[in-house]
C-alpha cells in the first residue's frame, strides 16, 4: 500500500470514529424542550425536560426558613405550571421575566435544577412598553 492510500484510510477511519463518537454522544443527554401544554398533556418515557416561559407576576414565593428555596408559576400563553427551584437564582429572575428551566416533572409540578434568564442586553421586548419610559406630560 502506498503512503497516499495509507494516509487516506487513516483519515477516513479517524473521521468515522469521531463522527460515531459525536453522534452517539447525545444518548442519555437528550432533554426535550417542550411547551407547558405538551408536558402536561403528553406521555413521555423520561422525566427530564426543559420548559420556557415567563414568570407570572406576583407568583414568586421564597421560603421563610430558606432563602434559596423558591416556588413560582411559569406561564406560557394560557398554560401555567408550578415550578420549584432550590438553588442560587440569577439576578435577573423577577416577575414577568423570561426564563428557561430544566428539571424533572413529578405530580403535575416541575422541579427545576437549572434556571436561566434571558441575557441582560436583550430587552428588545420592552420597546413598545411605554411604561418603561419616564413620560413627561406634554
Amino acid at each position: 500500500m502506498n503512503n497516499r492510500s495509507k494516509i487516506t484510510i487513516t483519515v477516513v477511519v479517524v473521521v468515522t470514529l469521531f463522527f460515531i463518537w459525536i453522534i452517539s454522544g447525545t444518548q442519555g443527554k437528550e432533554v426535550p424542550f417542550l411547551s407547558i401544554e405538551e408536558l402536561v398533556t403528553g406521555e413521555y418515557d423520561q422525566d427530564r425536560f426543559r420548559l420556557g416561559g415567563n414568570v407570572q407576576a406576583g407568583s414568586i414565593q421564597i421560603a421563610e426558613d430558606d432563602l434559596l428555596k423558591v416556588e413560582f408559576i411559569l406561564k406560557q400563553g394560557e398554560s401555567i405550571i408550578k415550578v420549584h427551584y432550590y438553588k442560587t437564582r440569577p439576578d435577573l429572575f423577577a416577575d414577568y421575566c423570561e426564563v428557561i428551566v430544566e428539571g424533572e416533572y413529578r405530580n403535575n409540578e416541575f422541579y427545576a435544577d437549572n434556571l436561566m434568564t434571558k441575557c441582560a442586553s436583550r430587552y428588545e421586548g420592552d420597546l413598545r412598553d411605554k411604561n418603561s419610559y419616564n413620560l413627561d406630560e406634554i
Binding site: 469521531f18 459525536i22 447525545t26 443527554k29 432533554v31 426535550p32 424542550f33 417542550l34 437549572n114
Partner: peptide, 17 residues
C-alpha cells in the same frame, strides 16, 4: 420535538477531541 443537549454532551464529546 425540540431536544436539547447541554454542557454534559459538549464536555463529554469534546474532551477526547
Amino acid at each position: 420535538t425540540k431536544i436539547t443537549v447541554g454542557a454534559p454532551f459538549f464536555n463529554q464529546v469534546n474532551i477526547p477531541i
